[in-house]
Design a protein around this nucleic acid. Structure first.
Length: 269
DNA sequence: AGCAGCCTGTCA
DNA sequence: TGACAGGCTGCT
């Protein structure tokens, strides 16, 4: 579900509510793939720790804890963080925590997400160093270095989190359309100006989405349960058969690298 | 590089 | 009933 703008929307809504609170009691569901290193260790390690910060790299939320520890949260496709001053009843709650002054929950029907505890910065860094720069703030030069010069279709490069962190299927399609670049073009065939245009387009699209609280295509909601409205501004994503908003061509849908891909064959070259 | 697999919910 | 979904890993 969530890409960079959605994860940042969650971060902005959850951070002020949980900052400086401590985990008083933590209960975890028996899903070791979701709760690492294990549900039991996650629960015991979190208990007693204070939340000192909530940061983000790409689609990954990074919670800074007391004693130099960290908790990372990846929302996968359907992950949801919920904060409430009072206890909440809901389906698919995999982590339920009583904080000093409220309740924090992780809900994830498909269980594609992951919560992981790191005892220190060094352990966390092993993960972070495998991730590309954050797509919202990457410089044009670093973007060109990451995406240019590689022979895979440019859309697949944008989705590769080791090269660039935060872009998913929606914003790849939207950014490529705004930059008027066809998704199948090899990254290595993009000119300098095209790479710069693409970086600017992606950041523009994601910033606009952030202003509107993200895209709620299926059921994305922020930590307060509010959906975003950027899906109403989508130019190509899930708009196959409709007219292109810039050139009035017909938007096409194809499968690229196993992902549904939406583009306008008339104005994207 | 490409594809199955992980999961459940929703929509056609 | 089956196709499909915003992500990522690990296999060939």
């Amino acid at each position: 579900m969530p890409e960079l703008p959605e994860v940042e929307s969650v971060r902005r809504t959850i951070a002020p509510q949980i900052l400086e609170q401590s985990f008083v009691r933590v209960e975890c569901a028996p899903y070791p793939r979701l709760l690492r290193p294990s549900p039991e260790l996650l629960a015991s390690n979190l208990t007693g720790k204070q939340i000192q910060g909530v940061e983000r790299l790409g689609k990954l939320l990074i919670v800074t804890l007391s004693q130099g520890a960290f908790l990372t949260i990846h929302l996968g496709m359907t992950g949801q963080l919920i904060y409430s001053p009072r206890e909440v009843e809901a389906s698919h709650l995999h982590l339920a925590a009583r904080l000093s002054r409220g309740f924090l929950y992780y809900r994830d029907p498909r269980r594609f997400g992951a919560l992981r505890f790191y005892p220190n910065q060094a352990e966390l860094n092993l993960v972070l160093k495998k991730m590309g720069p954050d797509a919202l703030t990457i410089s044009d030069r670093d973007f060109a270095k990451a995406i240019g010069g590689r022979s895979a279709p440019v859309k697949m490069l944008l989705l590769n989190q080791a090269l660039l962190s935060g872009v998913g299927n929606i914003y790849a399609d939207e950014g490529l359309h705004l930059a008027r670049i066809t998704p199948t073009r090899p990254g290595s065939e993009l000119s300098g100006p095209e790479l710069k245009r693409l970086n600017r387009a992606l950041q523009k699209v994601m910033l606009k989405s952030l202003e509107l609280g993200g895209s709620s295509v299926k059921n994305f909601v922020d930590a307060n349960g509010r959906p975003g409205t950027f899906q109403e501004e989508h130019r190509v994503y899930q708009r196959a058969g409709q007219n292109c908003p810039t050139c009035k061509g017909i938007i096409q849908k194809m499968v690229l690298g196993g992902r549904s891909t939406h583009y306008c064959p008339r104005c994207q070259i």
